[in-house]
Simulated scan of single mutants.
Amino acid sequence: MSSYKSIPVTMIETDVSYHKPSQTFRESVTLEDSALEVMTDFTRVTAISINPCASLEQARERMVSSGVQMLFVTNQYHEVMGLITVNDLNGPKPMQAVSENGGKMEDLMVRDIMTPRLKLEALDYEDISHARVGDLLETFKRMGRQHALVVEKDTSTDKQIIRGVLSTTQLSKQLGYQVQSSHMAGNIAEMAQGG
């Protein structure tokens, strides 16, 4: 005779959701803290993606509903084709695409304004694991960008895989002052004192 029992069944209620992985960040960091303290780690939180044929409005809605400012543009095999940011949506790229290719703004797709994979720069996870927050500030200043991808080698396939993302938005939250990559202060000491 079996000692197993049938588990009771329940009905799903209205307005049900599901658990989503989340990463908790330290509330504040200093310039001397590890750069890993400000990295969104895709081994701990799910990266948000979108289809290249989605409309710009769908991309905007996905960003708002997910609370992110960047989406990976992926194909049906979940391979990264590029990325699109809130700055791409709100900046001159949509108007440029319409003027170069014709058509209407509402007909634009994510693929029309995304930054393609071949133009994406990344930082190596090994370097980030030994870097400090101050090093990241210098790197953002040099790159002139608001996001930086972090890559590592997938040991099972020996191919590059995106491990995480760094953003000036997350950096600003944890440092307690606004970090802007395009017109940062001349040096880190000025920024720390001015913040």
Rank of each mutant, 00 (worst) to 15 (best):
I161E: 10
M70K: 01
S6V: 09
Q146D: 10
D154N: 08
L149S: 01
Q193S: 15
F25R: 10
N101H: 15
H130G: 12
M105R: 15
I128G: 01
L108E: 01
N187L: 04
S181M: 10
D154H: 11
E32K: 10
T30L: 10
A192S: 08
E190H: 06
R132Y: 04
K153Q: 15
G176T: 11
D124N: 13
F25A: 05
V133H: 01
T115D: 10
L166G: 00
A192H: 07
V80C: 05
G144W: 08
D124Y: 14
V38W: 00
V16S: 13
E190Q: 07
E106M: 12
L71E: 03
N87M: 09
L123F: 10
D135M: 04
E32C: 11
S99H: 15
H147G: 06
E27M: 06
R142G: 09
Q58Y: 09
G144Y: 09
Q180D: 09
A122P: 00
Q58H: 07
R44P: 02
Y77I: 14
S167P: 02
L83Y: 10
R111G: 04
A122D: 06
R117N: 07
F25P: 01
A148T: 01
I7A: 12
G134H: 02
V9G: 03
T30K: 08
H183P: 13
E121D: 10
